[in-house]
Design a protein around this nucleic acid. Sequence first.
RNA 1: GCCCAGGUGGUGGAAUGGUAUACACAGAGGACUUAAAAUCCUCCGAGCUUAGCUCAUGCGGGUUCGACUCCCGCCCUGGGCACCA
Length: 822
Amino acid sequence: MVLKYNPGKIESKWQKIWEKGKVFQAKDKSKRPKFYVLIEFPYPSGEGLHVGHVRSYTALDAVARKKRMEGFNVLFPIGWDAFGLPAENYAIKTGIHPSVTVKKNIATFKRQLKSLGLSFDWQREINTTDPKYYKWTQWIFLKLFENGLTYKKRMPINWCPSCKTGLANEEVVNGKCERCGTQGEQKEKEQWMLKITKYADRLIKDLDNVNYLEKIKTQQINWIGKSFGAEVDFKIENSEKKITVFTTRVDTIFGVTAVVLAPENPLALEIITKENEAKVKEYIKQSKLKSEFERIELEKEKTGVFTGSYCINPLNGGKVPIWIGDYVVATYGGGAVMMVPAHDSRDYKFAKRYNLPMREVIAPQIDTDKKTDLHGCEMAYEEYGVLINSGEFNGLKSEEAIEKITKWLELNSLGKKTIQYKLRDWVFSRQHYWGEPIPIVHCEKCAHLRQGYGGQGMWPVPEKDLPVKLPFVKNYQPTGTGESPLSAISKWVNVKCPKCKGSAKRETDTMPNWAGSSWYFMRYIDPKNNKELTDSAKLKYWMPVDWYNGGMEHTTLHLLYSRFWYKFLYDIKVAPQSEPYAKRTSHGMVLAEDSRKMSKSWGNVVNPDNIVKEYGADTLRLYEMFMGPFDQAIAWNTQGIKGCRRFLERFWDLILGCNSKKSSKEVESALNRLIKKIGSYLEAAKFNTSVAAFMEFLNFISSHQNEVGKDTIEKLLILFSPFAPHISEELWKQAGFKGFCCEQEWPKYDSELIKRERVLLIIQINGSVRDKIEVDSDITQKEAEKLALNSEKIKKWIEGKEVKKIIFILGKLINLVAIDKR
RNA sequence: GCCCAGGUGGUGGAAUGGUAUACACAGAGGACUUAAAAUCCUCCGAGCUUAGCUCAUGCGGGUUCGACUCCCGCCCUGGGCACCA
């Protein structure tokens, strides 16, 4: 009597046995080559594990399992990114300390992850909210501080009136707070900043040396936004001052009919003439009232005001009016632009609105065939062309003119070649309780003596005093004044100055939750080290991460931040190389059955617990691999789950029903083809076609059941175990094989066996299939031609025609090119 | 507006220059059953004058003996960026 497939029974059994046998632990001292597989560690939310987690974790689990079987010493760790607003908001509502909530949520996640048979090395579990962990997050901050990569800046920040906290640009989506969806505002506050812009160029350049999906690279490059151009100085009339503008089109400089300043530009207030003062001040006031979001929403509506002052065009000495317009971005290119309405569509709109003059200075390069006449054209000509109305530069092509005019400016000290980035420095402070305290002390006395960082009395907390632990509090309410709730805890805030030992105060801002995740992959390597961040020999052995998978939504945030930190750690000789991740892939979202995002409010959430209970973990794993291409978003389908369960049942019955000692040649050949396919599919993240290949193979052997020997079953189970580890392990045991299936050597294919002896030769006439005949796979062209020409079907097609050419592809097809006889 | 990824049966999708629609889901018919479920077998792009033929991979061209695949030009969908000078 053959046993029935019962995942509920076998899955938890094997999970326990594997754990006891420590089969998934990475070895620190090993002569084997290493392979580091990384998934983005989850935020342990109260909602529990999402089927989206299951998709990406299972995929990388399959990779990790295969690599292990290939003889690699595999590190596949897991941990918790546990700082963050939901736990704090929950604490505000209920008074339950965030650490309690986090602990509870982690327990749930852990149970859920373990029920899936993921081969994590649980010995290395980390938690960003553990003081033993965030000690080193703070340590990195101190290093950044010491190396001049931090600064404090009073700046307009994005403020969420609901969360009562500052937001990074990246956390504002369409003007709204990413977390709660409330409309954001602008607020001025002293913020800790990290100089990520200093690394902008390297963050682009080093992408050449890593294997990321191409779309990830382009997205990062666009985000950093490098543009080559020139800075040009426009002297202000009757003043010692000048306005420096940035332009990528210095070739259009003879077409400048105004210079426009951002309202935030401090020069703006200095240059107003008396008669314009009231008007201009009112305009600046109004535009400050508008939040950055509103400005964008008002879209291409360009407004501005004339200051009454003029500056001088350095090229032709012409008098240029200075305007203020809020379409000029304050934080880019110095917050000033030269306005060339004839050749920039934004300037064109601005000039039209205020009736400013336009001067054409670029003519389209005239093709001899078609003449382009731009006169009367209702838009700006933004392409490159040939210079006109540009004095001595007339007749030059734009490319040459850019070079020559820039040189001229440099010779006359009126400007220079330069590079601008869109990337802005990272706003690193949050006014929250549930984050890593920034380890800085402010001493008024030292500030008075102009000591401490920047003479402002700021001192780093000495390394021996780390971690600066979060104090236990009763009240988590944000102060709403912009101060962190920590500022209310005087016992914690008041400390001795590390320098003068006088009374001083702690920094009360905390770090954003991107901090802990910016280096966590390093801590997995040496999670219990309390002397250093990670032992350097271990780092050298394990880094870089060989395969990192995560969501596309982290491309411009976490992925960029962590690359920045790693580069910095490389510069201070902590990290062994300058890039942390050798390969990066991304997974598509798992949508609900109705193709919408899964959400409590829609009531369309699929809970993995229920699926495991009803169908088993292997079915869930297999289904999530099979549902579609890994990098694409895909809708859940309950019927699809059932199909995968059906497949596993057939698999189970078939394997247990095979009794032959040795496989037939045909089966052996099919198996070797399967080995080849699965190997290459896994490397290429083609999980869906891997599963299809198993299904095809099963269909094949179910019609050759008497020819399936133990040798085939052995290799099949090994191949299948990365995808469905429990059923493979159980069948391995039932079939009487020794050891763990998941510890066997990954099979190699024999290319001799892959070759087929007989193949179906396709016969085409002019590219259309007209006949198929079975032939020896090594048939020669001559023999194939003979067979083709003798085929009755083919004869009909070439009757009255002349065969002009024959194309023969060995073992595949023969194509006869036949044309009518004259 | 710019950048990226896509568009193939009723559905999810396969095929990276060589048999278009693998593999699955759904559906139809049959077997088993008192019946249902489960399971197994068969069919399943469209059309036609159905031993076969024609047409079909968003649309229009092109390259090629041969194009879902490569090139040019459109249309549509999804994602990212967005007054970045």
